[in-house]
Amino acid sequence: MQPRWLDGRLTSAVASEFIKPNDRLSSFDRLEIYNRVYWFRVLDCLYDDYPGLRAILGERKFGRLATAYLAKYPSTSFTLRNLGRHLEKFLREEPHWVTPNEELALDMARFEWAQVLAFDEAAAPPLRPDDVLDTPAAKLRLRLQPYLSLLELNYAVDKFLLAVKKREADILRDEASNTFDSMPRAKKRKRRIRLPKRERIYLAVHRHQNMLYYKRLEPAPFAILCSLGKGRSVEQACESALRGCKEKDCSRRLQEWFHDWSALGWLCRMRQRGRAAG
């Protein structure tokens, strides 16, 4: 616990003003129990939600980042689920906590927060053919599922995270087995996973039948989805994304994409605007 209070007084002196000591613990000791439990709880939560960022930074650096982040952005939600929602913002404001991997760390933080959303964010009723039957593409506007995140990233964080999770599963399996004890000491050490190289990827992070998935997209369908998400009409979204495409090939591919997105339930009807009274 910090030795000094916000106004510069000794924390022990402040604690003794409002907390009774007992025969075993001083006022400061008793306050410190709560301080330790608080930090353990919130750091443990970020530790669980950001395994990829932890693997990039290493445990100590991750711990320093998490502490600084929580000091600036303490929880403002009744649920710990939302604890990481300002992490991307924090990394943009104070990138020195993740030097020299600023961009990679930012990509991973965005990717891991997208997974929190994909897990339990709301699902809207998916689009049905009847919903769009008589609407021309120029007027048709769709929205995307609230649980779907579209990420344009500079690193292949998806593959990296899979490798991290595989390593953690391997460690867990080894620890559950006696054969681990007979392995040479060097092999027991946590294998470091090579950081991903720079590579532009387009990811959709979503859920299907309540299981979490991430799917790589090509640039054109990614751009269409982003445009739809911004409220542009289907015609506008497709036109801008497919400039330069040969017409026959274009329509076939468009059909495929929209078919896939519908099958995954990503597309929803726009919300009906409430009618003005009177």
């Binding site: 689920r81 897990f119 339990d120 964010e121 709301a122 699902a123 649980y147 859920r207 309540n210």
Partner: peptide
């Protein structure tokens, strides 16, 4: 107290 996904299922 979430809006969707596995917990409510």
């Amino acid at each position: 107290m979430v809006d969707g996904g596995r917990p409510l299922e």
